[in-house]
Simulated scan of single mutants.
Amino acid sequence: MGNLQVEDRDEVRCHLQVCTGCREELSNVVGDLIALAVGVEQHPTPERARREFLKRIESESRFRIEEMRRTPVPKEKDCVD
């Protein structure tokens, strides 16, 4: 959900609070993605690509953490079916 706009993310969070089916489906998809990630043959990453990748993750992570701190998680009472 980190790639969604704030309004869309809040809408999805609200929906997940009230929709058991979607929560279960999200859980299944996340589980499938984890299984896929650990089931793929691993190859060493070239050092330069690794450094650039880690630099990008650090930069985006700081931005997302700050964005999440500024954006309150909607309470169930604020969500509409």
Rank of each mutant, 00 (worst) to 15 (best):
residue 38 V to A: 10
residue 44 P to W: 09
residue 71 T to F: 02
residue 71 T to R: 12
residue 43 H to Q: 14
residue 65 I to W: 02
residue 48 R to A: 01
residue 55 K to H: 07
residue 73 V to P: 04
residue 62 R to T: 03
residue 61 S to T: 10
residue 41 E to Q: 13
residue 53 F to L: 15
residue 57 I to N: 07
residue 75 K to S: 04
residue 67 E to F: 06
residue 40 V to Q: 15
residue 62 R to Y: 02
residue 30 V to A: 13
residue 31 G to N: 12
residue 43 H to V: 09
residue 60 E to K: 06
residue 30 V to F: 08
residue 60 E to N: 09
residue 76 E to P: 05
residue 64 R to L: 09
residue 43 H to R: 14
residue 35 A to W: 00
residue 39 G to F: 14
residue 30 V to E: 13
residue 50 R to E: 13
residue 47 E to G: 00
residue 40 V to S: 04
residue 65 I to V: 13
residue 56 R to H: 05
residue 34 I to N: 06
residue 47 E to I: 05
residue 29 V to S: 07
residue 53 F to Q: 07
residue 69 R to Q: 10
residue 65 I to Y: 10
residue 63 F to G: 00
residue 37 A to M: 01
residue 54 L to I: 02
residue 61 S to F: 12
residue 33 L to I: 09
residue 75 K to L: 10
residue 59 S to Q: 14
residue 38 V to H: 15
residue 47 E to T: 08
residue 50 R to T: 02
residue 63 F to Y: 11
residue 27 S to G: 12
residue 47 E to C: 00
residue 66 E to R: 10
residue 58 E to G: 10
residue 34 I to H: 12
residue 55 K to T: 13
residue 27 S to P: 02
residue 57 I to L: 15
residue 53 F to T: 08
residue 76 E to V: 08
residue 27 S to C: 10
residue 59 S to V: 02
residue 32 D to L: 15
residue 70 R to C: 00
residue 66 E to V: 06
residue 53 F to N: 12
residue 51 R to A: 14
residue 33 L to N: 07
residue 60 E to L: 10
residue 66 E to H: 09
residue 46 P to Q: 10
residue 63 F to S: 04
residue 68 M to C: 11
residue 43 H to K: 13
residue 57 I to C: 09
residue 32 D to T: 04
residue 27 S to D: 14
residue 73 V to C: 05
residue 70 R to H: 01
residue 33 L to V: 03
residue 49 A to W: 00
residue 54 L to P: 02
residue 72 P to I: 01
residue 49 A to S: 04
residue 39 G to S: 14
residue 63 F to T: 05
residue 49 A to M: 09
residue 46 P to G: 04
residue 30 V to M: 15
residue 39 G to R: 07
residue 74 P to E: 12
residue 62 R to C: 06
residue 27 S to I: 00
residue 37 A to C: 09
residue 49 A to R: 05
residue 35 A to S: 13
residue 40 V to P: 00
residue 67 E to A: 14
residue 50 R to Y: 07
residue 62 R to D: 11
residue 66 E to A: 12
residue 57 I to M: 03
residue 58 E to N: 06
residue 42 Q to L: 07
residue 54 L to Y: 08
residue 33 L to G: 00
residue 41 E to H: 05
residue 66 E to K: 09
residue 35 A to L: 14
residue 78 D to R: 03
residue 66 E to D: 09
residue 27 S to V: 03
residue 77 K to F: 12
residue 42 Q to M: 04
residue 38 V to P: 01
residue 73 V to F: 04
residue 59 S to I: 00
residue 74 P to S: 09
residue 46 P to F: 04
residue 36 L to G: 01
residue 52 E to H: 10
residue 55 K to L: 03
residue 58 E to Y: 06
residue 56 R to Q: 02
residue 33 L to E: 13
residue 42 Q to W: 09
residue 31 G to Y: 03
residue 50 R to Q: 14
residue 63 F to H: 08
residue 59 S to F: 07
residue 54 L to K: 05
residue 53 F to C: 05
residue 72 P to M: 04
residue 31 G to F: 00
residue 27 S to H: 06
residue 28 N to F: 06
residue 36 L to C: 08
residue 69 R to A: 13
residue 39 G to T: 05
residue 74 P to Y: 08
residue 49 A to F: 02
residue 50 R to N: 06
residue 68 M to T: 08
residue 43 H to S: 11
residue 43 H to M: 04
residue 74 P to N: 11
